[in-house]
């Protein structure tokens, strides 16, 4: 399936999920079923998805707190007095959040970053934004690699960031990384201009 259709499907799916009243429990089961089917068709490994679902943790914490702090009529669950509306809100947040994260992961699992960038381009996202994203995808690894090498070089000379006194060193490293990346940007631009770049990506 072309990437731009996947992006549209994801956005459409999320709008439907968010707009569904949280009392329609059956609908949520259906949404989950849709995602499971997508995952099965796309041969996504459940373990891969589960591991990446930890990004949702802050929301889960917030959702768990809600029944305890919300107002309104309270009910007894396992000997705890919980707010009814809080429970419902927590359920809504958790269900919608989880569905969103899984849907996003389905897209990530079945699409390479390059395909995604091309998909967004086909969706008529402004050229500048697409170009910036494409460069980010391309150079993320180069820059993190550079960062790793700098960290190794620091550690090799006995540096350990143990307390805030060491932060200035880290700040200088970040500064150096920024300068290096900036200079690389200039060299990349030079190489692009040398191959006839005039400010627009050829289509």
């Amino acid at each position: 399936m072309p990437a731009h259709l996947k992006v549209l499907a994801l956005v459409g799916f999320m709008l439907v999920v968010v707009a569904t009243p949280r009392e329609w429990f059956a609908a949520y089961a259906f949404f989950l079923g849709v995602l499971v089917t997508v995952g099965a068709v796309g041969r996504v490994r459940p373990g891969w998805v589960l591991k990446r679902m930890v990004v949702e943790t802050p929301f889960v914490v917030f959702a768990v707190l809600m029944p305890f702090i919300a107002h309104g009529p309270r009910i007894e669950v396992l000997g705890l007095s919980l707010s009814e509306s809080g429970l419902l809100s927590a359920w809504g947040l958790l269900a919608k959040g989880t569905l969103g994260v899984i849907a996003g992961l389905m897209l990530a699992a079945t699409t390479t970053p390059q395909e995604l960038v091309h998909g967004l381009e086909r969706l008529r996202l402004p050229q500048q934004l697409v170009q910036i994203m494409a460069f980010m995808v391309r150079y993320l690894e180069v820059v993190t690699d550079e960062m790793r090498r700098m960290a190794v070089a620091r550690a090799s000379r006995g540096f350990v960031a143990r307390n805030p006194l060491h932060w200035p060193v880290l700040a200088r490293s970040v500064g150096a990384l920024f300068i290096r990346s900036f200079e690389r940007g200039e060299r990349v631009h030079l190489a692009m201009v040398s191959r006839g770049y005039t400010g627009r990506m050829p289509r």
Binding site: H118, R138, V142, A191, G196
Partner: peptide
């Protein structure tokens, strides 16, 4: 530095960049 020269997502796109321009 080839990392300065190769900036597109795939090898094919990168080689196509010049002639497309």
């Amino acid at each position: 530095d080839p990392d300065d020269q190769l900036f597109m997502g795939t090898v094919r796109e990168d080689v196509a960049f010049g002639p497309a321009n």
